[in-house]
């Protein structure tokens, strides 16, 4: 594992090129370009705020910020992992001809997602200004949950990527799983809204803690509790290590399939 990390480091200039290209390609074809990163959460916010605050009347103070702070993080996770499902296939011509550490393609895809997440913090800040939500020093803590979310997404992406090459239907299956997963994560509703009987389901979900670690500094202006941070860190680290090992084991077979 150490040797492969060193190898990824040697190819860091390729990694940077791939991230830049990924972002460029994603926005080149749309008229509004990078504005989409900002508009997408804005529009989602309008829809969800209307539905949950005014129609379903979810009782959460400052619902807009409560929801949006979790949603941008979820959106990053969902996008990064879904993009990763196709990334080995899209680089197939390269994989078949030249050796580069294959993990670099997954890494580039997830990091492009992280850059996207950082960009989407701008509309989040605009909305916070607009609804007069306070900006607190706790915001300086945000790099930690962003790092944890990136580690967790990378781990899952590394495990998924080779599977998607070998079996085409993992991609649509994963989309269904993602939808269910989103509703099993306290994003639109607070943890307390779940009946006690089922709450363990939310607590067993690593994304619950990672989302909470990201939301608390923004929404409550506080550092997340030790319990949340430990759960999130353990989940992110274990997922990354296991994902990396799975990828190492299967990545040699990828050239036979693509």
């Amino acid at each position: 594992m150490l040797a492969s990390l060193r190898e990824v480091f040697r190819y860091r200039s390729l990694l940077r090129d791939l991230v830049a290209r990924d972002l460029k390609v994603r926005y080149k074809r749309s008229a509004l370009g990078i504005l989409w990163t900002m508009l997408n959460p804005l529009l989602m916010m309008v829809i969800f705020t209307i539905v949950f605050a005014h129609i379903l009347r979810v009782q959460v103070e400052h619902f807009t910020v409560y929801f949006l702070s979790a949603f941008v993080l979820w959106n990053f996770f969902a996008q990064a992992t879904s993009w990763s499902t196709g990334c080995l296939l899209s680089y197939a011509p390269l994989i078949k001809k030249i050796y580069v550490p294959r993990s670099i393609f997954v890494l580039a895809t997830v990091l492009a997602g992280t850059v996207n997440l950082l960009i989407s913090l701008v509309p989040l800040a605009i909305i916070m200004l607009f609804v007069e939500h306070p900006f607190t020093p706790a915001l300086a803590f945000l790099p930690v949950p962003i790092l944890l979310a990136t580690m967790f997404s990378l781990g899952l992406s590394l495990a998924l990527a080779p599977m998607c090459v070998m079996f085409a239907d993992v991609v649509p299956i994963y989309q269904v799983v993602l939808t269910a997963w989103m509703y099993l994560t306290p994003i639109i509703y607070p943890l307390s809204a779940m009946p006690d009987r089922y709450r363990w389901l939310l607590l067993a979900n690593p994304m619950t803690h990672i989302v909470e670690a990201f939301r608390t500094p923004i929404y409550q202006g506080a550092i997340p509790s030790a319990h949340v941070m430990i759960s999130a860190s353990v989940a992110a680290t274990v997922t990354l290590v296991v994902g990396w090992l799975i990828f190492e084991h299967y990545s040699d077979r990828v050239a036979y399939y693509v």
């Binding site: 190819y11 200039s13 390729l14 940077r16 090129d17 011509p93 390269l94 001809k97 030249i98 580069v100």
Partner: peptide, 21 residues
Amino acid sequence: AGFDMELSGRENVFLNGAILG
């Protein structure tokens, strides 16, 4: 292999170099 047909020759020199590490 490792060339991007949409990029210029100049950009491809760097891309290809990066692919070679």
